[in-house]
Amino acid sequence: MKINTKNVEVPEIDMTPMIDVVFQLIAFFMVITNFEQTQADERVKLPKDQLAKPAEVKREDKLTLNVGFKRDAEGNKQSEALVLLFGEDIPVLQMGPKLKQESKIYKQKGTDPKDVTIIIRADAEVPTGLVQELIKLAQEAEFEKFSLAATQISD
C-alpha cells in the first residue's frame, strides 16, 4: 500500500471568533476597571446601611482616614484600632501630630482645613469612643467637616 507522506495538509485554525471574544473581554474589563485612585483600604470592613448615600457633589478636598485592625487569615483581630494612612499604621490616639501636619500642608497649598472633608472609614468593630477621639483630634487640627462612611445595602 502506498502511503502519501508528503502532501499532508496542515489544518488552518480560524482565529477570528477567538479574537472577537478576547476583544469583548478586554473591552469589558476596561470599562469596569476603576482607574481612579481610591483611598479605600481592604482591611476595613465597613458597617452596612441602607441610608448611606454617595456624596451628591464631588468633594474637591478630602482626606480619607481608614480605621481598622490588623487581622489574621481567619479574621481575628491582631492589634488595637489603627489608622491606616499612606502605608503607615498609627494608633488612633497618636494621630494628633499627623493630622496637624496634614492641616499645615493644606494651608501651604492655600486650602483652608475647614473646607476639607475628613472621610472616616472605620471598621464596624472599632470602638465608637476611638472614632470620637479621632474626630476630636481632627477638630484640634482645625478640620470641621466630617463624613462617616458605610457600605450601601439595598433590599
Binding site: I26, A40, L46, S147, A149
Partner: peptide, 22 residues
C-alpha cells in the same frame, strides 16, 4: 487581558453620613 483581569478590584458601593462638628 491578563493585565485587566489581575488589576480588577471589585469595590462595593459606598456612601456616607455627613456630620458637621465645628
Amino acid at each position: 487581558l491578563i493585565f485587566f483581569i489581575l488589576t480588577l478590584k471589585i469595590i462595593e458601593p459606598e456612601g456616607d453620613f455627613n456630620v458637621n462638628l465645628p
